[in-house]
Write a protein that binds this DNA or RNA. Structure first.
Lengths: 219, 219
DNA sequence: GCCCGCCGGATCGCATACGATAACCTGTGT
DNA sequence: ACACAGGTTATCGTATGCGATCCGGCGGGC
């Protein structure tokens, strides 16, 4: 059996990610303890970890609350993710098997279908799956962990700040195909890194332009 | 007064960073508690945070030990740091005041002196100071926090894996000067990012080549 | 009417205590 | 002499309890 600290951690993080505990939600330790019949200590420890990972904020003698992100945080996260993922994709290049590439192409094909079906949720899930399966091959555990965290953060922020750009999805599928071609052709690392970084920055730019057109400030 | 959890955290992290608790050192909670008259709970909580930050490893029902890094970890960290710092430096560009640039130039001048005095410790401290003062101006707290952590990790690793490249220090000072010129001239973000990234990758390449020449594998 | 200090409830911070787990050591049978 | 079972010890995991801290409301002074 997993330790209670892990149970608490998974439960809290799950509820934060799925939106049960939205931004600003107060996490009262005693209350959580009473609801779950788990004493306060495992809760406290799990919160320390969540705090270090940036999911909650703990103020001494006051309490913990789920972190809130301003609109600019989406921009900042994408900007960072572009660099991290560019590097990780280039590093993963050598490790990808023919099977991996075939799987990635299949996922990209499904994205095309989701697009035709006007299914944005599925599209977005497949998109994450596509990139995740690639960068998880990068031989750098620390980098992969950072990426997982930033992707999760992105999903969390997306729920509060609506980010969308019409037409971007079509282009995104095309860019995925181009990226896969580069990977298959064993292009040099710099080329792959630049393409992967550019891909993410293109999304960022498209959303930013669209937001500006609507009069929203994402900064 | 700071909470005991913070005291424990600072104490542990300090001892890990200054080498008192080297890689692999076992952290026995009861023992720490007896030595300091602080009960186990603040120690446990501080360790959760250190674990999340990657400084220690906790195995359930067994205990905590200071993380150990293989030789390749230095390479991986530099590789990552190059991207993060490239971005942060470019972002900081607009925020830097004339005074900041003057300070940076002064530090770079002192690096020159340290070089002439054959004082590698001082040189390395000034180098960190130089880059830190620049990237701390980047308007992205999360990114800055990541950078601080990676720099600290680098220092920690450096103690176990000797990393050195003859002649690199001279070139480094010159690259700093060139970078400052770019910043002063308000060069565009891409140019600055590339230069800052390149600067760090140059060090990485130089050290790697030197290690290979010595027959060491850093991978 | 407004400001300031006091008070009570909610909540956190931490020490103590005990049960649970894993690593080690020891002794026995072969 | 070796393999294995059993007990032993060091250490962790977590429940309970109490003192400390903060926040919000109330009443007195100006």
């Amino acid at each position: 059996m997993a330790t209670r600290t892990e149970v608490c951690y998974d439960l809290l993080k799950g509820r934060i990610l799925d939106g049960t505990y939205g931004p600003g939600h107060r996490l009262v330790i005693d209350q959580l303890g009473r609801e779950t019949n788990i004493s306060t200590i495992p809760w406290r420890e799990s919160m320390r970890r969540l705090e270090a990972e940036g999911w909650i904020e703990i103020i001494p003698n006051v309490g913990a609350r789920v972190a809130t992100f301003d609109a600019g945080e989406w921009t900042r996260t994408m900007r960072l993710l572009a660099r991290l993922e560019g590097l990780a994709t280039a590093l993963a290049a050598e490790e990808l098997t023919a099977q991996d590439l075939a799987d990635a192409r299949r996922i990209n094909g499904e994205m095309s279908e989701a697009l035709a079906d006007f299914d944005p949720l599925r599209f977005s899930q497949l998109n994450r799956q596509f990139h995740t399966m690639i960068f998880h091959r990068a031989p750098d555990k620390h980098l992969v962990a950072l990426l997982d965290n930033e992707w999760a953060r992105l999903d969390f922020i997306r729920r509060s700040a609506f980010t969308h750009a019409p037409g971007r999805a079509v282009q995104s599928v095309a860019e995925h195909a181009a990226l896969l071609d580069l990977l298959e052709a064993r292009a040099d690392a710099d080329t792959i890194e630049t393409a992967a970084r550019r891909h993410k920055l293109n999304t960022l730019d498209a959303v930013t332009r669209h937001a500006v057109a609507l009069g929203n400030a994402l900064a």
